[in-house]
Amino acid sequence: MSTKIGNSTQVLILFSFLLLPVVSFAQGNLKMQTDIPIDSIRLSDPFILADKNTETYYMTGTGGKLWKSKDLKLWEGPFTVVETDPDSWMGKNPMIWAAEIHQFKGKYYYFATFTNRDVIIDTVKGNKIERRASHILVSDSP
């Protein structure tokens, strides 16, 4: 599902859990794998959705990637769940912070903060403040 966020930002975000054989990631290319033990996944700010409809656990967090599991022990992933428009305020490689997925009234909501490290909006006591904003995306399926 595609969602356009704000006419002024012209951000196109694809929110679907489609499998891609090779996923681009800030630390290099990660290949989709199966049967990954939970202690082998490096993830900051993890969040797990226990989805009753699919009887599957979905885990996401900082970085915007997604893993899924039937038993919380072995995982499959990473999947790309967000595609941003490089011509938007986010730039070519925005950081995705503390992503979460929640189900409510038959829809799935993806909450995340996006950061463009190339755009400094202020400096406070010598600390550069990067351009960032939180968005909520919606989908019919996890």
Rank of each mutant, 00 (worst) to 15 (best):
E55N: 15
D45R: 01
D122Q: 10
V22I: 12
F15K: 11
K4I: 10
L72E: 14
A26M: 08
S69C: 04
K68T: 10
S88G: 05
Q103E: 12
P94Q: 14
P86Y: 04
Y108F: 07
G61Y: 07
D45M: 02
F114T: 01
R117Q: 03
Q27W: 06
S88N: 06
Q27H: 08
N53I: 14
G63E: 01
D45Y: 03
K73S: 15
N53P: 01
N93I: 09
F47E: 10
A99M: 14
L19K: 15
G61D: 07
G6M: 05
S24E: 09
F47C: 12
K92P: 01
G6F: 05
L30W: 14
Y108D: 05
I38L: 13
K68V: 06
Y108I: 06
G64R: 02
V23H: 01
S44D: 13
I38G: 01
A112E: 04
A98H: 06
L20A: 11
F111E: 03
N29C: 02
I101E: 08
K92D: 02
D118I: 01
I96T: 10
V119R: 06
T123Q: 13
F17A: 15
S40V: 06
Q103M: 09
I48Q: 04
P78N: 05
S16N: 14
A99K: 01
L74D: 08
V22E: 15
F114L: 11
V81A: 13
T60C: 07
L19Y: 04
F15S: 10
I36Y: 06
K4P: 00
F25G: 00
E55G: 11
F114N: 00
V82A: 04
M90F: 00
T54I: 05
N93Y: 09
K4M: 04
D51L: 00
G63N: 03
T62H: 00
K128L: 15
F104L: 14
W89T: 05
E55Q: 15
K73C: 11
E55R: 13
K105I: 15
V11L: 15
D71Q: 12
D118A: 10
A98S: 13
K128R: 14
M59E: 13
D85Q: 12
L43K: 02
P78A: 04
T9P: 00
L43E: 02
F79A: 14
F104A: 12
K73G: 11
V22R: 11
V124E: 12
S16G: 08
S69G: 13
N29G: 01
Q10L: 08
E100D: 04
G61S: 09
L14M: 07
T54M: 04
H102F: 07
R117P: 01
V22N: 13
I129Q: 10
S24V: 03
Q27I: 00
E83M: 05
Q103W: 01
I48C: 08
L14F: 11
A99E: 09
H102V: 08
K73Q: 15
V11F: 10
G61F: 07
T34P: 01
K73A: 15
F25V: 03
K65T: 03
M59S: 10
